[in-house]
Design a protein around this nucleic acid. Structure first.
Ligand SMILES: Nc1ncnc2c1ncn2[C@@H]1O[C@H](COP(=O)(O)OP(=O)(O)OP(=O)(O)O)[C@@H](O)[C@H]1O
Length: 763
DNA sequence: CTAAGTGCGGTTTTT
DNA sequence: CCGCACTTAG
């Protein structure tokens, strides 16, 4: 069994997988199989005595987590993959927080504020404090708060600590600390956390409640982390808190792919990894399995222009392949349609799938032109990023009611729900409520609930409206106790008046909104069905809310009737992925590198790393394009090609025009002593103990009639969502009877037989 | 209180 | 160009 697992790896990779004497760190270039090593290591550990609940595997995106899960499921078809604690930092630690909310003074079903909730709360605080929003710009303040949290500073520490990251701002922004403190207070009394809080509060939970930490430390034996170069202090420290005394860590990463410094990622975390954790072996992987030699050479020659980096050897055995093409177009429009044409042409001649094509860009705003061009050519595409489905107005409206049901103190949900649809409760009323809330230190909901406070200086008419809202929410809370998700959703829509509002007419705009609402209902229903089928559990409202609070658009369980689509996404979003053909558009000065990130060589080098990530996504073909005329803020101007284009070794490039390699790029590099790195000064020492085992918990289910006796190994079934698949095995008895099915599209799944909806294709 | 219109500022990357 | 804060009319 082990041999089979290891056969798919080269010698260097095998070593990492097998190594179990201490902590392990892999630093290696793009496409060298780091993620593959992690996946195989998890499988290997599982085959050699570790149980799924002893492993914690952390990724940065839900997409990566999902991908990893399915790859492991592929290697170990009988594994109950959902027993693995595998997910993003945020999702895993949110789970831990939910299990211990009371320890940190939060309600069990605390809310998660998304970006728009945060914005609205902060703006309300600005008003309260009468701050000049020209000086206290939302985006800057938001950044500072996030920075504070990522540095694990509570408001008190942020203000007082001598080496606080806020220090340098306080002179110019004397109220910054106060804003942060107020913001934190308000979130707390609303029973809400923002994204960064998830990490900060988990850190505090572990720090202040060692017995809680110990409970998890008894359970976990191994922590595995992908993309370690992008961890911030909070993430790094959390791992540090857990690891040690028989709990090992294995991390993989590539310093050249560190592209998230804007959210606190600190490359020192990976560089100092060996000293932080001790007893750590460093591994290198040098063979690139993804790309052809030209692409590997091009990316290497590019990244060599960075001073801050660890030099690496990389080679490919896939042959030279095609050179990188650089193409100049006149306008952005022409560029987009050139890309569309090129894809069409390749698609027709190579007879491959559109899934093999990705178009990458620096900013989401660039996608529009591309979409138009693709639509014009009738080329199907799928776009990642941008405004997520769950942030859509219509969806947020429904969610605000659902959030109130679960946590009536959720201030942002309250503010949205109370006048959506319009109930004649406007700013005047809200600000009265607001001042009561502040002076009495109670939530909006409490004001409505306490008769005494209620009547203060409000007119009879307003009182009636507020009372009506209170009754509505109380009724929905009651409904939630005995309704299932679907009927609860219907109740919310009908009783709130949202349905009547949205279905009031059939204007095209209205139809769009209706469609979004329908889609939301469908996605809830699909989620609840898959939970039933895969885990035999009934979806509860709090679980549903918690789940989607972390879901970005891309992870929504979409229907995939059309499974042949071009991928459009930002370079950031493409990290960790690979495609046969990559198109990077907008390769011009001011856009890539982005004009806001050109101030220091630190920023410029990060932009260059970003470009490195873009190129290294390509397996066979890579096209870089730019337009000479760019429309920015309405007016147009001439732009020059990106300086990065001339960083690439000309021998790997085929250019459709002349004026690229001519101009030498100006690179006024600052020398950072600590960045003068070699493999040698990454060495470290120390050692830790060893480990044994622990156990898992059971689960319960209701009982329903059983069917599916006609199935046996080798049967082919068609599942309504997963498509066609082969039954690999049937396990368990009675209500617990499960089938292991390998689906063509979605990989292997374990499904509870009594809940599965399928049709038999072949006995 | 709501809806519709004007004028201004700023403009990235994401969990 | 897009989102916003603010104004004005109903
Ligand atoms: N030993 C191997 N044999 C065959 N294919 C391999 C091997 N190792 C890696 N690959 C393939 O190489 C490609 C890149 O692997 P992987 O995504 O794990 O690399 P990575 O180092 O994580 O890349 P990145 O840093 O860009 O995320 C994948 O398609 C993977 O299947």
């Amino acid at each position: 069994m082990n041999e089979e697992l290891l056969r798919e790896l080269n010698e260097a990779q095998k070593e990492v997988v097998i190594y179990n004497d201490g902590n392990a760190l892999v630093i290696a270039g793009a496409g060298s199989g780091k993620t593959r090593v992690l996946v195989h290591k998890i499988a290997y550990l599982l085959q050699n005595g570790y149980t799924p609940n002893q492993l914690m595997a952390l990724t940065f995106t839900n997409k990566a987590a999902k991908e990893m899960k399915s790859r492991i499921q592929m290697l170990l078809p009988h594994l109950k993959a959902n027993m693995l604690w595998m997910g993003t930092f945020h999702s895993i630690f949110l789970r831990i927080l939910r299990e211990n909310a009371v320890c940190i003074g939060f309600p069990d079903f605390f809310s998660i504020y998304d970006e728009s909730d945060v914005k609205s709360l902060l703006k309300s605080i600005f008003k309260e404090m009468k701050l000049d929003e020209k000086q206290y710009k939302y985006s800057f303040i938001r950044h500072c708060i996030s920075e504070a949290k990522n540095s694990l500073l509570t408001p008190a520490n942020y203000i007082q600590s001598p080496n606080s990251v806020g220090k340098s701002y306080f002179l110019e922004y004397p109220f910054l600390g106060k804003i942060y403190a107020t913001y934190t207070e308000r979130c707390k009394s609303a029973g809400a956390m923002d994204f960064d809080d998830i990490l900060l509060y988990t850190h505090l939970l572990f720090k202040k409640n060692p017995e809680v930490l110990d409970r998890y430390r008894e359970r976990f034996r191994y922590i595995l982390v992908d993309e370690y170069q992008d961890t911030n202090l909070a993430q790094h420290t959390l791992i540090e808190q857990i690891v040690g005394k028989g709990i090992k860590v294995c991390a993989v990463g590539d310093d050249a792919q560190s592209i998230y410094s804007f959210r606190g990622a600190d490359i020192d975390n990976i560089l100092n990894f060996r000293t932080t954790f001790g007893d750590c072996k460093l591994f290198k992987l040098e063979q690139n399995y993804r790309s052809t030699q030209h692409i590997v050479n091009a990316s290497n020659s590019l990244i060599k222009h960075n001073k801050m980096r660890i030099p690496k050897k990389v080679f490919s055995t896939l042959g030279d392949g095609e050179k990188i093409r650089i193409v100049e177009l006149f306008t952005e429009l022409e560029e987009a349609s050139w890309v569309a044409n090129k894809i069409n042409e390749l698609y027709l001649s190579k007879h491959n799938s559109l899934n093999d094509y990705a178009i990458l860009y620096r900013t989401n705003a660039q996608s529009r032109t591309l979409e138009d061009a693709l639509r014009k050519k009738n080329l199907p595409y799928r776009i990642y990023g941008g405004i997520g489905f769950y942030q859509r107005k219509e969806v947020k409206d429904i969610l605000s009611y659902l959030r109130l049901i679960v946590n009536p103190n959720d201030e942002e949900a309250f503010l949205r729900a109370i006048n959506t649809p319009s109930r004649g409760i406007g700013i005047a009323t809200i600000s009265k409520l607001h001042s009561i809330s502040l002076s009495e230190n109670i939530s909006f909901w409490d004001i409505l609930s306490e008769e005494s406070e209620f009547g203060m200086n409000l007119s009879m008419n307003v009182k009636k409206k507020l009372f009506g809202f209170r009754v509505l929410i109380e009724e929905l809370i009651e409904d939630s106790k005995h309704c299932e998700m679907q009927s609860l959703l219907q109740n919310v829509l009908v009783k709130s008046g949202l349905r009547a509002d949205i279905y009031a007419n059939n204007l095209p705009e209205s139809l769009d909104r209706q469609q979004i609402v329908e889609e939301f209902i469908k996605s809830a229903s699909e989620y609840s069905i898959s939970l039933l089928e895969e885990e035999g559990r009934v979806l509860t409202l709090p679980e549903f809310l918690s789940e989607i609070s972390l879901a970005t658009d891309q992870d929504r369980t979409e229907e995939e009737e059309e499974n042949n689509k071009i991928t459009l996404m930002t370079v950031h979003a493409a990290k960790g992925l690979e495609f046969e053909n990559i198109f990077v558009v907008g390769m011009q000065e001011d856009l890539f590198p982005y004009y806001l990130s050109c101030k220091s060589s630190r920023e410029l080098e990060e932009e260059r790393r970003l470009f490195y990530v873009a190129i290294t996504r390509a397996k066979r073909r890579c096209f870089l394009s730019y337009s000479k005329k760019a429309f920015r803020f309405g007016d147009s101007g001439n732009v020059r090609p990106s300086r990065f284009l001339s960083d690439i070794d000309p021998s790997c490039v085929e250019s459709s025009n002349s004026n690229i390699s001519g101009k030498k790029s100006i690179s006024p590099y600052v020398h950072y002593a600590k960045w003068n790195l070699t493999w040698d000064n990454l060495e470290a020492k120390k050692d830790t103990g060893n480990s044994t085992s622990s156990t898992s918990t059971a689960n319960t289910t209701p009982s329903i009639i059983s069917k599916g006796d006609e199935l046996k190994e080798g049967s082919i079934i068609k599942h309504e969502r997963f498509g066609v698949g082969e039954v690999l095995s049937i396990e368990g008895e009675g209500n617990d009877k499960k089938i292991v099915v390998r689906f063509q599209e979605v990989g292997t799944k374990i499904l509870l037989l009594r809940f599965v909806k399928y049709t038999l294709v072949k006995k």
